[in-house]
Design a protein around this nucleic acid. Structure first.
Lengths: 218, 218
DNA sequence: TAGATTGTTAATCGATTAACAATC
DNA sequence: TAGATTGTTAATCGATTAACAATC
């Protein structure tokens, strides 16, 4: 209900607030004002107060915000107080790195299964988990009820596998493919990571830096 | 000059345009109207025309846009017609996956070196490249002049290494760490990829889907 | 020419910033 | 109490959408 009204811009800032507050807490900060936090994060104090006020009154006039308390509240808003079972599809380079590199626990998830179509990687170990064949996917989902999935598979397989997962009850996707999930499926949560697009953006930014343009024209 | 005036929102859409136009071209499309492209991409035709008009007049009234030509123009805007030498710092799980997974050529870059501080991984092969020790970084940069770097190293090392690279002439960073480069260095291009934040956003989105909230309250 | 679709201006919408009264 | 800082309303800014004349 209230959640629907929060703008995307605000939501995208929440994980960063949570992260900075964690650092502050680790560095012994007990309280912080919106002004000081703004300075550290490169935002305005106004924006910070506006953002927090979307969810409630977390501060105290004349004092500021209690770091630990505020971090806790934002964590709850982000759903980090629950642990959602998640599976990974695709144990190639990227899939393996994600499985090994990401701190799922502190992001509200638990990685409970890894699947791949390639017999050469099935049976291999990644952290605590053994890579299973995609043939076991249905059975596994029926038994373990994962609610979220990471897609690190080729674009061509994404549609088929996503459809399948949705039919097994998966409702959230961390999507590293270029298949556009949101077009086909409506009430499913999707977070796209387009690494290639990200690097391309850097190319643009670089071409705008001192000298580059001139070189082309002279 | 003109470049500075383009809004960030527009720039972030350019790689996606480029990608979609590539798909269209591969599927035999010769021309496309803003209306049709909008439909395919989930945007409005108005927005597409506004976006393109930031850079010039790429279409023709009554006809639309020539797919191949438009893609080429956008590619040039993104700087994909040049190949910027790039190095990777950090050959851990994530670094390895990035090096192996990303199509640098089609993003305006060429990966020419990989470095790591861990003697256990130095000497290993990733694709065509052999992982070098960070001790060789200065010499390598003086000889090969990379202009861009990928940071896949621990946060604690990021500041030191970034400073070093900048002093060696690197002017663009694809930053996978949580070290905030933009704070310390001004005229350097930075593209941050915060995978953890991305997953955290998915946690939020999931917690807003049917049933979740109610469960907490009943 | 008539139809289609752009390029571009104007209107709307949303997000950020500024200001200030409330209050700790 | 006086000083500080929030919560919140109002003002500004920017981005998206709508409209339409230009033109192929």
């Amino acid at each position: 209900m209230s959640k629907n009204s929060i703008s995307n811009s605000v939501i995208r800032r929440l994980p960063r607030y949570h992260r900075f507050l964690g650092d502050l807490e680790a560095n012994g900060y007990v309280r912080i004002s919106s002004r000081e936090l703004a300075e550290k994060m490169g935002l305005t104090a106004s924006q910070i107060r506006q953002d927090f006020n979307c969810f409630g009154e977390f501060g105290q006039q004349g004092y500021g915000y209690n770091v630990k308390e505020l971090r806790g509240e934002i964590g709850k808003i982000l759903g980090l107080d629950v642990s959602t079972p998640m599976i990974l599809l695709g144990a190639g380079n990227l899939g393996k790195a994600i499985a090994a590199h990401i701190d799922f626990r502190n992001r509200g998830f638990e990685l409970i299964g890894i699947f791949d179509a390639n017999p050469a990687v099935v049976g291999g170990k990644i952290g605590e988990l053994t890579v299973k064949s995609v043939d076991e996917l249905e059975e596994f989902c029926k038994a373990n009820r994962p609610e979220a999935a990471i897609l690190c598979i080729p674009k061509g397989e994404a549609e088929k596998e996503a459809d399948r997962l949705i039919s097994y009850g998966v409702r959230a996707f961390w999507n590293f493919t270029h298949y556009d999930l949101r077009i086909s499926h409506k009430d499913v949560a999707v977070e796209n990571v387009h690494l290639g697009d990200s690097l391309t953006t850097l190319s643009y930014a670089l071409s705008g830096i001192s000298g580059k343009e001139k070189e082309d024209k002279e």
